[in-house]
Amino acid sequence: MVREFREKPYMHDLNAAILLAAQLIYTGDADLLEIIGLSIGVSLTAVLASCVIGMLLGAAIAVLKFRGRGAVTILLNSLMGLPPVVVGLGVYLLLSRAGPLGVFGLLYTPTAMIIAQTILVMPIVAALTRQVVEDFYAEYDEQLRSLGVRGRRLVTTLLWDARYSLITVALAGFGRAIAEVGAVMIVGGNIDHLTRVMTTAIALETSKGNLALALALGIILVGVSLLVNGAVASLGRRFGRSRYD
């Protein structure tokens, strides 16, 4: 009896969820599209910002020789595992009315979510970029030194030549951002039509007991992630990644 009671509603939910997901997508539900749009918008912006900062930082650490370089590398690698809720709390304290950046009134806005996700994703991009660029640098070092390539030209050359590996780095960052719930929940507040994204919506619907809707959103979230990765992979093929390495 007990087993039946546990299994049946679950199976029912799964079927209902798939049906609901198909229905939501097919009818182009406005609320759903808004949530998807905000999710992608916030995460893409955060990843873009992370790439600009993180790739330059990672490449600089890879080519510069300075005291404490090992410590910086360890720190960066550890920051890859930053707990989202802790970052959310930190950004919350910074942006709340009483906080140092409170005057800008950014708390519970998409901008706050972008800031939090950038703090989460930037170390991942920087740490992985450092590793990738360091490997390239080991290969190119003598040749580039012989040509007198130094400073900014050295960094941009290495980043450009590592571009296909760095796309994977950016995707890893995007994966972290789009799947993250703790930080955006705290600094965004999951406000309907304003800061509700897919992950916070799933958390909310689950807690309300709307398991079917939560599952439907989950399926769509995974689908979006697959779509983005697939699009990047096919772009890579078009520009001949396989021919270039």
């Binding site: 290969e139 190119y140 003598e142 040749q143 050359t157 030549d161 390495d245």
Partner: peptide, 8 residues
């Protein structure tokens, strides 16, 4: 150098 290194 002994081993050619070219940019991609």
């Amino acid at each position: 150098f002994q081993r050619p290194v070219h940019l991609r």
